[in-house]
């Protein structure tokens, strides 16, 4: 059956709903904290609009409050975002970007790349059929939730009661678990890699207190995936369509 771009987009939006539920309270908290740190409403909104990187945005507020220079904050952001480089490398092997001569071949990578976050990466790369419209639907849903949460938080303060917001905060973890389980059912190697990633991330956070979460993820990705590569086959990890005919 031929899938149309429209149905693929909708499929992506549906896959993005749990991400949106998780992003909303986080973005509201960012908006509140940003205005408390002294950012103008427009600046807080611009951060979520143009930077769109949760952990880095929170880190920048902490550094600003501590009196760090703009350059130091930009460098800290670069370091924190190295994990997205790794994720983009992995995603680029999975997403079929059709090259049409004469068309703007770079436009699609720019749009797709902007939408890569920890959450959209794991949802997209573990989806059975990853297409560009699916990813756009997924990323757009997440992005709009992040943006509207920031606007609400910076404009009105967090509208959601704290208990509900913390409840919504568990959404991302529940989603991670829900997409991990089918992979583990496929082969135990996937579960082993995830367990190794969790142990490495936990170990790193205990060994180096205050290690930014971005670096925990980088360490886990590089080392735990090597465990998988040593004992598993490529096809076991994801429905791979590696080499086009």
């Amino acid at each position: 059956m031929e899938r149309t771009a429209g149905t693929e987009l909708l499929r992506g939006v549906r896959a993005g709903l749990p991400v949106a539920v998780g992003y909303l309270p986080m973005a509201m908290a960012f908006g509140v904290l940003a205005t408390q740190t002294g950012l103008h409403f427009i600046q807080a909104a611009a951060m979520s609009l143009f930077v769109y990187a949760g952990a880095s945005q929170f880190a920048s507020l902490g550094l600003l409050a501590g009196g760090a220079s703009a350059l130091a904050i930009v460098l800290a952001t670069l370091v924190l975002n190295f994990r997205h480089f790794l994720m983009s490398v992995a995603l680029s092997r999975r997403i079929p970007l059709v090259r049409r001569p004469g068309r703007a071949a770079w436009a699609a990578p720019l749009a797709l790349g902007f939408g890569i976050t920890d959450e959209t990466f794991v949802v997209a790369s573990l989806n059975e059929s990853l297409t560009p419209p699916f990813f756009i639907g997924l990323a757009l849903t997440a992005y709009l939730a992040w943006l509207s949460g920031t606007l609400i938080g910076a404009g009105f303060s967090s509208l959601i009661p704290a208990v509900i917001a913390r409840g919504m905060g568990v959404a991302l973890y529940a989603m991670f678990i829900a997409i991990l389980i089918p992979g583990v059912k496929k082969t135990w190697v996937n579960g082993l890699v995830a367990a190794a990633g969790a142990c490495l991330a936990w170990g790193a956070s205990l060994a180096v207190p205050g290690l930014p979460s971005g670096w925990r993820i980088v360490i886990a990705i590089l080392a735990a995936s090597a465990v998988g590569a040593a004992i598993g086959r490529e096809e076991t990890a994801s429905t791979s369509r590696e080499e086009p005919a």
Binding site: A198, L200, I221, A224, E234
Partner: peptide, 24 residues
């Protein structure tokens, strides 16, 4: 390629744990 294909699962592990301990 094999190494890259396991990135999502490794990332999932690190994203779930230890963060899930600090929901509340």
């Amino acid at each position: 390629r094999r190494w890259l294909s396991f990135f999502p699962y490794a990332a999932l592990g690190a994203l779930i744990f230890p963060g899930i301990l600090t929901v509340v």
